[in-house]
C-alpha cells in the first residue's frame, strides 16, 4: 500500500482520535516526508496570560507528523510506536496563527526509524520548535487488535505488553 498523495487523510488523521480532536489537517505527504497543520484553537492554549499554544499541543503535532513521515518512508506498512522524542522549544508560537509541522524520516533500519521535525507558522527557517525522534517498527508484532483492553482487563499485568515492546 502506498500512502503518498493526499487521499489518505481519512486514514492518517481521522483514524487517530487525538489527531482528529486537535483538528489536524494533512497538508502534504511525500516520500519520507510529511506536513500537517494544527489550526489555531483557543482550546489548545497553554498560557492563558499570553494565548500561546501549549507545549503539549505542539508535541502532539510533532509526534503525529513524525509518525506520518515514518509511514511515508516504509516500503511495507507496519505498525509503529514512538520510542523517544526530544523537543526543543525555540520560541512561543504566535497567538492566533495556525502551526505547521513538517517531519523527515532520514533513516529506516529493519527495526527503527529516525526522524527530524520542525514546527513553524510561516517558514521552517523560523521554527517554534524542532524535534528528533526514534520509532520502533512492527511495534504491534504479536499483539492483536484490542490487546490493551483484553487479558486481565485494562489494568492487568499480562495483557500483551511483554511481546509488544522490544
Amino acid at each position: 500500500m502506498n500512502l503518498l498523495g493526499d487521499k489518505h487523510e481519512h486514514l492518517l488523521i481521522d483514524g487517530v482520535p487525538h489527531a482528529k480532536a486537535l483538528g489536524l489537517k494533512l497538508i502534504e505527504i511525500a516520500r519520507a516526508n510529511a506536513t500537517v497543520k494544527l489550526p489555531y484553537d483557543p482550546r489548545f492554549v497553554g498560557n492563558p496570560e499570553t494565548g500561546v499554544i501549549h507545549g503539549g499541543a505542539v508535541t502532539s503535532l510533532l509526534d503525529n507528523v513524525s509518525g506520518l513521515a515514518v509511514f511515508a518512508a516504509m516500503e511495507e506498512l507496519t505498525s509503529i510506536a514512538t520510542l523517544d522524542l526530544r523537543i526543543d522549544y525555540m520560541r512561543a508560537a504566535e497567538p492566533g496563527k495556525d502551526i505547521l509541522g513538517h517531519a523527515h524520516c532520514y533513516k529506516v533500519t529493519r527495526t527503527i526509524a529516525f526522524v527530524r521535525g520542525t514546527a513553524y507558522e510561516d517558514s521552517p527557517d523560523d521554527p517554534i520548535a524542532t524535534c528528533t525522534g526514534a520509532f520502533m517498527l512492527g511495534a504491534n508484532a504479536g499483539r492483536k487488535p484490542g490487546a490493551n483492553t483484553t487479558g486481565q482487563g485494562a489494568l492487568g499485568e499480562n495483557s500483551g505488553e511483554k511481546g509488544g515492546r522490544a
Partner: peptide, 19 residues
C-alpha cells in the same frame, strides 16, 4: 476517547502522555 493515538490496541497518543 479523544486522547487515543492508536485505535487498534487501543493506546493513548504520545502527545497526550507528553502533555
Amino acid at each position: 476517547d479523544g486522547n487515543v493515538g492508536n485505535p487498534m490496541l487501543p493506546a493513548l497518543h504520545g502527545g497526550v502522555v507528553s502533555a
